[in-house]
Design a protein around this nucleic acid. Sequence first.
DNA 1: ACCTGAACACCGTTCAAGT
DNA 2: ACCTGAACACCGTTCAAGT
Lengths: 236, 236
Amino acid sequence: MTQSPWQPISPPKPPRPAKAPLTRERIVDAAMRLLVDHGYDAVSMRKVAQELGTGQASLYAHVANKSELDQLLVNRAAEQMEFPAEPDPERWQEQLKDCMREMLRVMRANPGVARAAIGQVPLGEQALLSTEKFLAILKAGNLPDQAAAWAVDLIPLYVTAVSFEETVQSASAWTPADLEGYVGRMRSYFEGLPADRFPLTLALAGALTSGSGGDERFEFGISVITAGLASLAEKP
Amino acid sequence: MTQSPWQPISPPKPPRPAKAPLTRERIVDAAMRLLVDHGYDAVSMRKVAQELGTGQASLYAHVANKSELDQLLVNRAAEQMEFPAEPDPERWQEQLKDCMREMLRVMRANPGVARAAIGQVPLGEQALLSTEKFLAILKAGNLPDQAAAWAVDLIPLYVTAVSFEETVQSASAWTPADLEGYVGRMRSYFEGLPADRFPLTLALAGALTSGSGGDERFEFGISVITAGLASLAEKP
DNA sequence: ACCTGAACACCGTTCAAGT
DNA sequence: ACCTGAACACCGTTCAAGT
């Protein structure tokens, strides 16, 4: 390669390369940014490419398809989960519930990640490390192998479904006041049902619409699951 | 209205009107047909309109949007569920499990309906009638009102999530042989993990990949939920 | 009042052509 | 080998124009 004489000193290297090379890492970074800032619907191949200043076709050199990108997002979120170091047979049930709370916390902190996770078996490294953690706690609780194995399937299924439901409902960007209005309308709807065919729905209208906003429903769910699992523990 | 003399006997009504008028009912019929025959992805406003020989914009005169059409599909499927007539306090747990099995049966018979149902609170008439049925069984089991109310939220959440997972996985139209191959590869993957960081995942590789095809995982899930709920029953 | 064609603003994925 | 523009075959929804 020849140097032209009127440009005797060419910059040894451009101070910053105009474009950092595209990598899986950078793609997931950009996708995660879009997810957190603008929700799951904003994570399209087009918008991720745009965020990186490239064409959408370029992504396919590093990521097989959208579904793989979704899996990578789930795995990235899993990195944020912090689980207790030492499984304790004395309080495994409380530890199990704490882990489920932690899963939900991280899913809420990355709104929309549940939509990437739902229906997929999480097989990334970080996701598997949380599986390992759950297995340790369940074995500390003396669950039979098969029960522990199926439980680590059931647990993310439940937590992901709860988070998914939340993101669908908050997709309309609800304020707490909106939520209250919605819950009120739903209660009125239940209370207006014909009493002959819906006696219980009508009688329990209050209970059915209670705990829609906060964590009570979720706390109920993880208690039911934990109690159900505990009933399967082997008595030594 | 005058009769022209050279056509003294006009057909009282055209034997079949060239086009039956568009109704909600007919729209849901067509959508359901597409769902069962070609899966959830085939249920688009365009294809439903095509199936009815009309333009997609015409649908919006009868259905608010795609999400409402999804809800109507879920409700239509709910019509096919058959629940026991008489809640029996002696065997409410078995009845509860039977109802969950029936929910899954109908969702499997209408493949893809889980994808229309997930994340939505089912408020159609038929869906509410099944809620009513579940409440009756739970009250027969002596559950407190609030527990029964949250349970009828938890139960469809779980069954729908299971069915959703199945439809996602069978979206690639797997034969039993394909499934076996996939499960085998997954087991090999688990067994190849580094033993220092994934000791339990490795040790339980067999259990973790067992019951992927049939009903064992689902049976485990409904047993856990039922046992957990039973632990909340009020002792009179 | 109901229906329609055409358009708008999006998708995921592929592919020939560039460097 | 990696990247790109442009295209393909789709989406849900809207709207002015028809009957």
